[in-house]
Every structure is written in C-alpha cells, then in structure tokens.
Amino acid sequence: MLIDRLKVRIAIVSVVLGALFATSFMAQSQSDAENSSSALNKQVTTGESCVKDTSWMRRNHMELLKHDRDRTLRQGIRPVDGSIKECVNCHATKDDHGQQLSINAEGEFCAGCHSFASVSIDCFDCHSTKPEESVVGTRR
C-alpha cells in the first residue's frame, strides 16, 4: 500500500516537473527566436502590411507557401497569398550603392532568420532572389 502511494506521488511530481520544464524551455526558445529575428532582420517592405500579421507569418509562412505553390503551378490560380515572388518583391533590399541584393544573401530577409534557425531551404535553387523588373522601378 505504502509503496503504491509512493509510486503515485513520484509519478505526479515527475509529470509536473516535466511539464514545467517543457513550457519554460519552449518559452525560452520562443523568445530567443523573436529577439534574434528582430535583431537579424531589417524590416523591409514596400506595401503597408504582409498578407498576415508578422508573428503569424514568422511561424507559418512555409505552410502558406507550400499550400499556394501547388495551387499556382498545378491549378493555375494566380492570385494567392503565399507567393514567393511577392515575398521577394517586398522584402529584398538594395545596398548603399543602390545595388539589388539577393534576398537569400547573408543577413538578408530570408537567410538572416533561416541561418539562425538552422533551416536549409531550397526555394532559391530555382526561384529568383531579386524582385521582378516591373517592381524594381516602382520601389522607393
């Protein structure tokens, strides 16, 4: 009897401790990600806002892109939220001499976060890393 009760207590305590540890760890890594990305990234846009708010985009942009890439390519549905072309159009920057930088160049919008988070993406094996010519002219 005594041993059983002891076992139950040990179990409860370990579950609680485990949960505490897990949440604190998650919170820590979350704040890490936020601090670092604001430090790493220049907030560059040409429009007023992105398709969703920043914190949502930070976590879910890949799902959106993956979902809409199939709609665009396979179904020919052109107006989509998850357009990598639009990511680049808005977020690619120029250097001090007015030279267009690649969005996946070191420290730039995509690479800044991805290299911090150790995420390797192959989007730009195929996709252009610079804004469309038609957009470049209208940039600030």
Binding site: V88, D125, C126, H127, S128, P131, E132
Partner: peptide, 15 residues
Amino acid sequence: SLHDQKAYAPRGKGT
C-alpha cells in the same frame, strides 16, 4: 547552379 532566373520562370539545378 543558376542565379539569373526570371521571377516568373523558376528553374534550377538538378531538375
């Protein structure tokens, strides 16, 4: 590896 793609015509190594 390619670097000079058009935005509307993605193309890349190995495909």
